[in-house]
């Protein structure tokens, strides 16, 4: 299959944990974040600051509130013409809670498109009857992608809880089904977030997903890099892929300048994702990355 030209990722991507009460270091900080970003406009204000500083790619979950952000941006097309979403799906909490309440089939019914689309009915119905996950996976992707209609979403990620669950189960075909569907239906690149990069890269190759975009913890202290730094580098060398580093500060354990200087020097890393809530921190991060990349360019 002929793919479109590979999407060029920005060096620096903006994450969304800070907006939704997620902080891997402190529950108090997480709560403070949830309070500060209770109103969606507060999130958009920070995204505006990021955009002004040249950070225009927003890597976000399919949290319900993202839809509100999308709506605000669609209402201001000129202002957000260059803005890019990298959706990451699913927002696992809503499914986990539903499974406990309704069981697996009940959950599927709840989240599959409800509009009575003939296509959805056929895909869903056939899938359930044949115990064939292709129709289910593609329907769930479509349900999650609905909120991104009309905005630029050139890379679509599968979130780490699902990726890593499938990896542990050694579940066949699912990554390929996701990748093919994202390419065909959304003309986008598939991405995979993981806490187990070496395992993931082997599984993606086994399923025939070529040169995948992957996002994993990459930080100087090796925090949540399952198997360790050497195993990560060896896997990246062995299996061609495009790497986005996340958790570059290791939840705040590494000072920003030191963290970024180190990440920027790693030739395996194409992009990095970071979260920040203030203009000062966003600008500081942008400047640190520019300076580190400049040093690397001179050294080369």
């Amino acid at each position: 299959m002929a793919h479109k030209m590979a999407h060029k990722m920005d060096r620096l991507l903006f994450g969304d944990n800070q907006f939704f009460g997620i902080n891997h270091m402190s529950e108090e900080k997480a709560r403070a974040g949830a309070m500060r970003f209770q109103k969606t406009q507060a999130i958009v204000d920070v995204l505006d600051v990021a955009l002004a500083e040249g950070v225009r790619t927003f890597m976000c979950t399919t949290h319900d509130r993202i839809l509100e952000i999308v709506e605000i941006m669609k209402a201001n097309p000129a202002k957000y013409a260059d803005f890019i979403f990298y959706p990451g799906m699913p927002y696992a909490h809503k499914y986990a809670n539903a499974v406990t309440e309704d069981g697996y089939l009940g959950t599927l019914k709840r989240f599959l498109p409800q509009e009575g689309l003939f296509d959805a009915a056929v895909r869903g119905g056939m899938s359930i009857a044949n115990k064939d996950v292709e129709g289910l996976i593609t329907l769930l992707v479509d349900a999650e992608m609905k909120m991104f209609e009309g905005v630029n979403a050139p890379v679509v990620f599968l979130q780490n809880v699902v990726v890593d669950l499938l990896l542990g189960l050694k579940f066949k075909d699912a990554f390929r089904i996701f990748a093919d569907h994202v390419r065909k239906r959304y003309n986008a690149e598939p991405g995979f977030i993981t806490m187990n990069l070496p395992l993931l890269l082997r599984a993606l190759e086994a399923q025939g997903v070529e040169n995948p975009i992957v996002c994993a913890n990459m930080n100087k202290i090796g925090f949540r890099m399952s198997g360790g730094w050497d195993a990560y580098v060896a896997a990246i060398d062995a299996y061609p892929c495009r790497v986005i580093a996340m958790s570059i500060y290791a939840s705040g354990a590494i000072p920003p300048a030191e963290a970024i200087a180190w990440v920027a020097e790693q030739p395996q890393i194409e992009s990095m994702v970071f979260g920040a809530s203030s203009r000062g921190n966003i600008r500081n991060t942008v400047e640190l990355v520019k300076a580190a990349d400049a040093r690397r360019a001179i050294a080369a």
């Binding site: 809880v161 187990n196 925090f223 360790g228 354990a253």
Partner: peptide, 17 residues
């Protein structure tokens, strides 16, 4: 002290060490 210094790494990670 934070989890980054208190957690030992695991070979496979799902939902928490």
């Amino acid at each position: 002290r934070y989890t980054t210094e208190l957690s030992d790494p695991v070979d496979f990670y799902l939902r928490g060490e």
